[in-house]
Simulated assay, not measured.
Amino acid sequence: MRSLGTLPKPVLILEVVGIAFLLLSYLSLNGYVALPAPFGNATAAIVMVFLGIAFMIPAAVFMVWAMAQNVAPLLTKGSPPVNKSLSDQPKDKHHDADH
């Protein structure tokens, strides 16, 4: 992939929301941000970490799939490579092992 701008908009939005959850949980655990009572404890911060990771998974899957299509087209389309058998090779070919 050339840039993150090539991600679909919903996937990009999920990525930003996931990063926001991770940032918010970090800031609340270290005391930089005071959250309301239900969200201000350590359990809520752990839940925010898992939510942040869960929201970031679609972007990772999309990027891996796009790289698989670019790097290994045999995974998504195309025909298998043609194997040349040893009998198709010329007999007079010199190898280092023959010397």
Rank of each mutant, 00 (worst) to 15 (best):
S25G: 07
I53F: 05
A68V: 08
P80F: 03
A34D: 02
P36I: 06
P36V: 03
T43Y: 03
A66I: 12
G18E: 11
L7P: 13
G78Q: 03
K91S: 05
V64C: 07
Q69G: 08
I13V: 15
P80I: 14
A37F: 03
G18L: 06
N70I: 08
W65I: 13
L22W: 04
A44H: 00
I46L: 11
A66D: 13
F55N: 14
V33T: 02
I53N: 04
T76P: 00
A97G: 09
F62P: 01
D92T: 12
F50C: 14
P80R: 15
L29Q: 14
T6N: 12
T6Y: 03
L74N: 07
A54D: 08
R2K: 12
V16N: 06
K84S: 13
L7N: 07
G31F: 00
K77H: 12
K84R: 10
S87Q: 08
L22A: 12
L22V: 09
Y26F: 01
F55T: 13
I13G: 05
L74Y: 04
L27G: 05
L24H: 01
H95E: 06
P81G: 11
A66Y: 05
D92Q: 10
A44R: 02
N83F: 07
V82W: 00
S85R: 07
A97N: 09
I53S: 10
V11H: 04
V16R: 09
I19L: 08
A45Q: 06
S87D: 10
F21Y: 05
G31D: 00
G18T: 06
L12K: 15
D88A: 14
D88W: 04
F50E: 14
A45H: 10
N30Q: 08
V82Q: 00
N83K: 14
P10I: 15
S28W: 00
Y32N: 06
K9Q: 14
F39T: 07
K9D: 15
S3R: 10
I57V: 15
Q89M: 03
W65D: 13
P8Q: 10
V82S: 04
F55R: 15
H94S: 07
R2H: 09
A54E: 12
A72I: 10
A20I: 12
F62W: 15
L22G: 14
D96T: 09
N30S: 05
Y32G: 02
S87P: 00
L86Q: 12
P80M: 11
M56V: 05
L86I: 15
G5C: 09
I53H: 03
V61T: 11
I46D: 02
M48N: 05
L24M: 08
S85I: 05
A54R: 09
V47P: 07
P80S: 13
A59G: 10
G31M: 01
L14V: 10
G40S: 14
M56L: 11
A44L: 04
L12W: 13
A34Y: 01
L27R: 03
H94R: 11
A66L: 13
N83T: 13
W65T: 13
T76I: 05
G31Q: 01
A97L: 07
S3P: 04
P36F: 00
Y32M: 02
V16H: 09
M56S: 12
V11A: 04
P36R: 04
